[in-house]
């Protein structure tokens, strides 16, 4: 795609064209092609921030959901708690956490994890709760213990909703992680911030974040399809 765009700049020498394009703060494919390397490091950091945050967030949310599954009354308080975390403005959280966790991606991860909890927790509890009562009754009636029912029946049947929650969590986290720069967490946000008035830079850094979110979503969609073949089994 880039070469064909370049071809449209026909008469001008590419380097000279870039210079004027950069000077005019335009969208400069040539400049992007030349400077693309500098985005790879931040992109890697961004992937790291997102994956680590969602994985930790999933682990905590799953633990909370399993506790709330046995003690239903805890569901309300947990939703309130994670809801408060979710409502804290992210930039504020990044600054507020700095005195405690210092400057660096630790701070960013702590904040990002706290934003995933509500989404993932709600989806796991909904998924577990939507398992039809008669299926659980049949499982119990056949002599499965509570733990066996959870592992063999309830969790597998909740997988579609759990994965739906993870997809939202990944998309949200990719977006929020662009603000991690305020906590010193790096990522694509730091590139946006260093040259925030240069249009080409903002477009590339922002575009990569969008593509990253789309890629995570696609991967999870494929995972979801491969582990829930039973949902699409053709009727006889």
């Amino acid at each position: 795609m880039i070469p064909s765009v370049l071809a449209q700049l026909d008469i001008q020498d590419p380097a000279e064209g870039d210079a004027s394009c950069v000077a005019e703060n335009g969208f400069c494919p040539g400049w992007i092609a030349d400077n693309f390397d500098r985005y790879l490091g931040p992109l890697g950091e961004h992937v790291y921030l997102t994956v680590v945050s969602v994985v930790i967030g999933f682990a905590i949310a799953l633990a909370l959901a399993l506790i709330a599954h046995r003690r239903r009354w805890l569901t309300g308080p947990i939703i309130t708690g994670t809801g408060i975390l979710y409502a804290i403005p992210s930039v504020a959280a990044f600054f507020l956490l700095q005195p405690i966790t210092g400057l660096g991606n630790q701070t960013a991860i702590v904040a990002l994890v706290s934003y995933t909890l509500l989404i993932i927790f709600r989806n796991i509890t909904d998924g577990l709760r939507n398992v039809p009562a008669e299926i659980v009754d049949a499982a119990r009636g056949q002599g499965l213990t509570d733990r066996q029912i959870l592992r063999r029946v309830e969790l597998p049947l909740a997988v579609p909703e759990i994965l739906a929650g993870l997809r939202i969590a990944f998309s949200t986290t990719v977006g929020l992680a662009t603000l991690a720069v305020f906590a010193g967490g790096g990522g694509l946000g730091s590139e946006i911030l260093t040259d925030r008035f240069f249009r080409s830079n903002v477009v590339v850094a922002g575009g990569l974040a969008v593509l990253l979110a789309a890629a995570f979503d696609l991967v999870l969609l494929l995972v979801q399809r491969s582990v829930t073949t039973w949902q699409r089994a053709a009727p006889a």
Partner: peptide, 22 residues
């Protein structure tokens, strides 16, 4: 124990309750 007892007692209900993912 209830689980042990139930494994020795066949159980069929109106809604059947087959496991859709198996």
């Amino acid at each position: 124990s209830p689980a042990e007892l139930r494994r020795n007692v066949g159980y069929a209900i109106q809604q059947i309750g087959l496991f859709p993912h198996l």
